[in-house]
Simulated scan of single mutants.
Amino acid sequence: MTVICVDDEALILQRTVTMLKKTKKFDNVEAFMEVKEALDYLDGASAQLALLDIDMPEMTGLELAEKMKDKCPEIKIIFLTGYSEYAVDAYAIHASGYLLKPIGYDKLVAEINYVLGQVQAETVSAPSKTSGTRVRIETFGYFNILVDDKPVVFKRNKAKELIACLVDRQGKFVSRKDLFYIVWEDDDYDRAKQKYLDTIIRSLRDTLEEYKISDIFEMEKGLMRVVPEKFDCDLYRFLNKDRKAIEGFRGEYMSSYSWASETEGFLSDSLNM
């Protein structure tokens, strides 16, 4: 796992890097004082986490985060700053975490654990080994399916988005046409697109078969759905008022998909009720 740290103050940058290495959570820690160098790095590599100073002269950390997400959409962002008034702006662009300087080691570790989903994984009761539940679906932050705690790799991004949409529909059957218009929005559902949708569905089914989890997906007479009882999901536990799931929601839901904003708003509003 790779983490990027960007700060224009050399001493603070070095201290942050030292603390990151001390956690022993990362295979690679990359440090940059220049935002251009950090962006250039992402042209040829990927990173799972970035710690960004907000107040930098060349480009603000908020602007840098947006550019980083363009290059590496699933990167998680923790902002580091001495100014608490930046918090609202940070979460407006779906920051995963936020720390005020000076940063303490314990707080840094806690925030990294939270952002990477480790706290949630540790506090949620593990399924019984005899229950057959091997599949965990994450929707808070970015969408991922994990089998025995290992992420499922989809050959086609649209196949992943398709099943993400079905997870969002919470087990309800959705027609092929309706699903197409949700995922492809304003595109026309013509014969060519129907054939393309067939290709995406086949790719999805092939991937689920490969990971031996085809039972989480059902399709009959042109209708599709996921089977909620076949997997664990943070969204469903949140809706069932599970305390740990509610604490695990940080205002960010399936961040890669524009159609997920309605559910994200509902979840956020639920916290304020």
Results as ranks from 00 to 15, higher is better:
52 L>H: 00
54 I>P: 01
99 L>W: 08
141 G>M: 07
75 I>P: 03
110 A>Y: 10
264 E>V: 10
225 R>V: 02
9 E>N: 00
112 I>T: 10
242 D>Y: 13
239 L>Y: 13
200 I>L: 12
100 L>V: 06
100 L>N: 03
53 D>A: 01
164 A>Y: 02
82 G>R: 03
75 I>R: 02
107 K>D: 12
182 I>D: 06
58 E>L: 11
73 P>M: 07
197 L>C: 10
238 F>C: 05
253 Y>G: 13
195 K>G: 13
226 V>P: 09
268 S>H: 09
67 K>T: 01
13 L>I: 01
195 K>Y: 07
204 L>I: 10
61 G>N: 03
69 K>W: 01
21 K>M: 04
84 S>N: 06
151 P>R: 09
10 A>M: 00
194 Q>D: 07
270 S>A: 11
90 A>M: 07
120 Q>M: 08
225 R>M: 13
204 L>E: 11
208 L>N: 09
264 E>M: 11
11 L>W: 00
76 K>Y: 01
214 S>G: 15
25 K>N: 09
77 I>D: 02
65 A>L: 10
68 M>D: 02
232 D>T: 13
175 S>Y: 02
9 E>K: 00
44 G>A: 06
126 A>V: 08
129 K>H: 12
35 V>Y: 06
199 T>G: 13
232 D>H: 11
236 Y>E: 15
29 V>A: 12
164 A>C: 08
80 L>Q: 04
175 S>N: 05
113 N>P: 02
128 S>I: 03
258 S>P: 12
243 R>D: 15
78 I>M: 02
124 V>D: 15
83 Y>I: 00
157 N>L: 10
252 E>C: 15
6 V>S: 00
219 M>E: 14
158 K>W: 01
193 K>D: 14
178 D>Y: 05
124 V>P: 05
198 D>V: 05
